[in-house]
Amino acid sequence: MKNISIGQYYSANSPIHRLDARTKVLLAILYIVVSVLCKNVFAFALLLISGIFTVLLSRIPLRIILRSLKPIIIIMLFTVFINLFMTSGDRLLFEWKFIKIYVEGIYNAVFMAVRIVILIVGASLFLTYTTTPIKLTDAIERLLWPLKKIHVPVHEFAMMMTIALRFIPTLSDETDKIMSAQKARGAGFDNGGLIKRAKALIPVLIPLFVSSFRHADELATAMECRCYHGGNGRTKMTVTHMRFSDWFAMLLMVALGTAIVFINIYGKGYSM
């Protein structure tokens, strides 16, 4: 349990890894917008090419990227089939009893598949694969800083995230210990049906809850001792700055978006 890895961060030294975390949050959002904007074959082709380019640039092995797609395969297949069978158009391709497949349906199905793949790969590439959770938290805190003006507790949320991340290994160690202790008293976690197994977890969860309250209490005292008093008047040891590469990356993304809008307007062929 010691080696539990938080998130899917893949350590490497690529141009994308080196970008400021704030840039990557913005890039992920922009990329999602761009992929939703696509309307025709050429736009989707460009989107796909940009996706492949980003993957190559991140130096993350393909098999790891494919792993992130596993959980959404069902949703993807479902979307593809719905689009394939439910789209009606002018060019009928195949008909059998009540099933009708149009050329437009095939287009739509492929478009949706590309869009979903790019959505997931793009977001996880910029956010979870190339950015550590803690940097991500920091970035979100700094991006949302203006919201402090309307009394949104931005710093507090970020602090809670940080502490949660910090305590994942501690609590997982503790879960291990409690489970061993309960096993030593004859508790079984591996047999019986679903309900029996869920019930067997109660004697683990209750001590875990109690001890996490104790952790919280002691941590709060220790934080007070270290003069913690919220985000006001707090400084940071490391302050990252936006560099040329950050602005350049965002410019590229905006250029991609603009190109796709133009292609949507002037591109020939089927448009969804």
């Binding site: 910090r166 002691e218 941590l219 220790a222």
Partner: peptide, 13 residues
């Protein structure tokens, strides 16, 4: 002040 349980004093990752 340094407390008993080191785990409950460390805040960052």
């Amino acid at each position: 002040m340094v407390f008993q349980n080191p785990d409950n004093q460390l805040v960052a990752t």
